[in-house]
């Protein structure tokens, strides 16, 4: 690995200052499970690596009284799925955090890093889209927020401008009878990259039999993770039945524009979108009802 310097600031201001000072030659380090590999294999270069894990806000995992959830950008996956408050309210994100790499990776890799790496197949992003999460960004111009739906712009690219960093991800307050689920299709049970990844969130009406509101996020079927707007909106007011889930799957398939690669041909991926919409909606509905 090429030599670089190391800094571990304790405030966001100091971290942003370091990014400005090094003018694109500083790289942020959270869990390192992407960055260290990229530096070692010369996909990225850095003069200085800025470790954000000493910044309290970046390592904070906090649930507010109304259910709003703050996930600091450096919080590793294992802290998400070990936290009962999160497990009970954000099942989809927890499903994703449990299958990002193996245990060793989950000890280090953060959801914030998964977002910033901006892979089209990132496991956490479809779940975050479904759960209506928002990114909090800090930069030389101060703070701003961006919906997760809008964060990724191309494979490996996102809306972070020069000198900006992701501070954390915020989930909105929880609603009664709501829940989410994430599922990915891979040929084995663990340690692989999604052929298709799919996150669904539903809110049921008080009877528990009708979908009041739903959101569907797709992964690995386009250059960026996608929010399936038409399918999501169509679900409002529909009975929570297998027929409904299947029809939503057909609508979601319309926006899938996958590539063919060694993980699967494009038409197969489109087919899987329908299957996984059905399955994740069924899981989310059963979680919401219980």
């Amino acid at each position: 690995m090429k030599d670089f310097d190391y800094a571990a600031p304790t405030t966001i201001d100091d971290a942003v200052g370091l990014l400005a000072k090094h003018n694109g030659r500083a790289k942020l380090l959270a869990g390192g499970t992407d960055l260290i590999v990229q530096l070692r294999e010369f996909f990225r270069e850095a003069d200085v690596v800025v470790d954000v894990k000493k910044i309290a806000e970046v390592m904070d995992l906090r649930v507010e009284a109304d259910g709003r959830l703050w996930i600091g950008a450096g919080v590793p996956c294992y802290r998400i799925y070990r936290d009962e408050r999160v497990a009970n309210s954000r099942g989809g994100l927890v499903d994703a955090a449990r299958i990002i790499g193996g245990w060793q990776i989950q000890s280090r890799a953060s959801i914030g890093g998964n977002l910033c790496n901006s892979s089209p197949a990132a496991d956490s992003i479809p779940a975050l889209i479904a759960e209506r999460a928002v990114c909090h960004v800090a930069g030389p111009g101060g703070r701003r927020t961006v919906a997760v739906d809008e964060f990724c712009t191309a494979p490996g690219k996102n809306v972070l401008a020069a000198g900006e960093m992701l501070v954390g991800i915020e989930h909105p307050a929880t609603a009664a009878k709501s829940a989410s689920a994430y599922e990915r299709f891979i040929p084995r049970n663990e340690m692989d990259i999604a052929v298709v990844g799919l996150g669904s969130w539903v809110r049921l009406d008080p009877t528990g039999k009708t979908i009041a509101e739903a959101r569907i996020g797709l992964g690995a079927v386009a250059p960026t993770p996608l929010f399936a707007a038409e399918a999501s909106q169509w679900l409002s007011g529909k009975p929570a039945t297998e027929e409904t889930f299947a029809q939503a799957g057909e609508l979601a398939k319309k926006i899938a524009k996958p590539i063919s690669d060694m993980r699967g041909p494009a038409d197969y991926r489109v087919h899987l979108v329908g299957v996984l919409v059905r399955r994740t909606l069924a899981t989310a509905v059963s979680r919401a009802a219980s």
Partner: peptide, 27 residues
């Protein structure tokens, strides 16, 4: 593998298993 796939370098860091090839010693 030196890239976080094989786990042959697993150690416990504050009790959590990690791939020591993906941790900088300064951390």
């Amino acid at each position: 593998c030196n890239n976080g796939n094989c786990g042959a370098c697993t150690v416990l860091l504050d009790g959590q298993p990690v791939d020591s090839c993906l941790v900088l010693a300064v951390e």
